[in-house]
């Protein structure tokens, strides 16, 4: 994982609460089997709107997203983090994050920095007053600087340490392989195993076919 100590880049004000991961990347874009190349899928539905913040030239090359509360709710898709990173974002600032999104960010070197909502409001105003303003996010000092605004942010100590060091979780865990093996020795016999497979007898499944007449009344397109 890429280490994160400090980053300076253009701030992008996203004045919306409850930005769920279906908005960050709609499900139709989750079919790829690669980990890169998701930049065009970020906020795909909203980017069709010319007024959307990332369609404004001053913000288009932004790398610090400043969002409303409850960012990243819903689906566990890590693709949301990949899409933000592939677009060029290195940090997201918000007053509340969904747990799974926060966890996924920490694994991928995207900083999810939790600020007070009052500070988010101040930063939004500063960015909108002067589009293209840069924000510095300092993980060492746990501090965000945007023009005159200096705000501290929260992040748990362990995630901060891993981000600062750029450490790979799996490598860290495998240092304790002996303890995992010892734990496995102690597991009760009743705990289930998927192999050998047990199931009810196999039965042929009949394939459903399309109905001949399309019957839904679709609302007119505006």
């Amino acid at each position: 994982m890429e280490a994160f100590t400090t980053h300076t880049g253009i701030g992008v004000p996203l004045r919306r609460s409850n930005v769920d991961t279906d908005q960050i990347i709609p499900a139709v874009y989750l079919k790829r089997v690669t980990r890169t190349g998701f930049e065009d899928t970020l906020f795909a539905a909203w980017r069709g709107n010319p007024d959307f913040v990332l369609n404004q030239p001053a913000y288009a090359s932004g790398s610090v997203l400043v969002a409303g509360p409850d960012f990243g709710t819903g689906s566990s898709r890590e693709h949301a983090v990949w899409a933000l990173k592939d677009y060029g974002f290195r940090a997201v600032l918000a007053s509340r994050f969904a747990d799974i999104f926060r966890g996924n960010s920490g694994k991928q070197g995207l900083l999810a920095a939790q600020l007070a909502q009052a500070d988010i409001e101040l930063i939004w105003k500063a960015l909108e007053a002067s589009p293209g303003t840069e924000i510095t996010v300092d993980l060492v000092k746990r501090e965000v600087v945007c023009g005159d605004i200096v705000a501290s942010f929260q992040i748990d100590d362990y995630t901060r340490w891993r981000l600062l060091e750029g450490l790979d979780d799996i490598g860290l865990t495998l240092n304790h392989a002996d303890e995992i093996a010892a734990f496995e020795e102690s597991r009760a016999a009743w705990r289930p195993k998927t192999l050998p497979a047990k199931h009810l007898p196999p039965v042929a499944i009949k394939a459903a076919r399309p109905v001949s007449v399309p019957i839904h009344s679709q609302a007119p397109l505006s």
């Binding site: 799974i100 966890g103 799996i170």
Partner: peptide, 10 residues
């Protein structure tokens, strides 16, 4: 509980 892809790999 649900996990992300990095955790799936883990």
């Amino acid at each position: 509980f649900g996990i992300g892809t990095s955790e799936v790999e883990h």
